[in-house]
């Protein structure tokens, strides 16, 4: 009985706010078929793929200046930016721009202090309820693992960020919703976040919507699997070692069996 109640409540809540959540679903319910994201050319794909550090740094800039107003990145600490080519002082300076709550102090009070490199990225909202209250009932999803939580990964992130459009005539948008053919159900609570020139890149890259979307996708791919380069580098050594070992064992097996066959 209890579970039934829970499920129906879940269903009700899902109807009201669910469309705003990045469900990461392969297929979606309803008549409108969500469009499949187009495959993009990424530097990180394939067994030799590497991070595009410049793009990831630009993506970090877009995240900090635009996305982080609503979206958390709760698996990432400021110290992780060391992996992106920032030095210790730069990381410290970036962290110090944000305030975190610490405490209690000797009087039992909580206090604010500048963030340290060991702190996780500061959350935009204190909790989920506060986030919903500020976002028309929708909960901006955490972005740390988004690139792994959707089957199309970074392609999907790029497609959604560049996919905002005017709704076709046959689409009835919900209150406060925006049209995006790549988002589950084609309606998304998030308004188009990126516009030409939303940020100013210091390396001369033109801040077109496409460029920014691509950089964000690169950045979020890094936040989702920061171990990727290590993994592939070690992987090559392991696989080559095992291939040699297999060959040696095959020769051994042949030798051992040569008297039998």
């Amino acid at each position: 009985m209890d579970i039934g109640k829970r499920l129906s409540r879940a269903a009700a809540i899902a109807v009201v706010t669910g469309l705003a959540l990045l469900g990461g679903t392969t297929t979606d319910v309803g008549a409108s078929e969500t469009e499949h994201p187009e495959a993009q050319d990424w530097k990180f794909t394939g067994p030799f793929g590497k991070f595009d550090i410049a793009a990831i740094q630009r993506g970090l800039q877009v995240y900090l200046e635009v996305c982080s107003a609503c979206h958390s990145l709760n698996q990432i600490a400021y110290r992780n930016l060391l992996d992106l080519g920032f030095n210790a002082d730069e990381v410290k300076a970036i962290a110090a721009e944000y305030e975190v709550t610490d405490g209690p102090d000797d009087n039992g009070d909580m206090f604010e202090r500048p963030a340290r490199p060991s702190d996780k990225f500061v959350l935009p909202f204190a909790n989920e309820k506060a986030a919903r209250a500020s976002n028309n009932g929708a909960f901006p999803t955490d972005l740390s693992l988004l690139a792994k939580a959707h089957p199309a990964g970074p392609d999907y992130i790029f497609a959604v960020l560049t996919g905002f459009d005017d709704p076709p005539d046959d689409v009835e948008l919900g209150d406060g919703m925006n049209y995006n053919p790549y988002f589950s159900g084609k309606q998304i609570a998030m308004a188009q976040p990126l516009f030409e020139g939303s940020v100013e890149y210091s390396d001369g890259t033109k801040a077109t919507v496409e460029n920014m979307a691509r950089d964000v996708a690169n950045f979020l791919h890094w936040t989702a699997e920061p171990e990727m380069e290590d993994r592939k580098r070690i992987g090559w050594k392991v696989v080559l070692f095992l291939l040699v070992l297999s060959a040696l064992l095959y020769a051994t097996k042949r030798k051992v069996w040569s008297s039998v066959h």
Binding site: R6, L7, R9, A10, A11, I13, A14, G18, L21, L22, G23, G24, T25, T26, T27, D28, V29, P47, T141, D142, L145, K148, A149, H150, P151, G153, S184, A224, R231, K232, I234, G235, W236, V238, V239
Partner: peptide
Amino acid sequence: FFAPNFFGEPENYLRANPLQTPA
């Protein structure tokens, strides 16, 4: 080392949410 999530379900990289069933 090269396709660690090939057999996995992407949805499991989303934190459990007792109020929302996946599609």
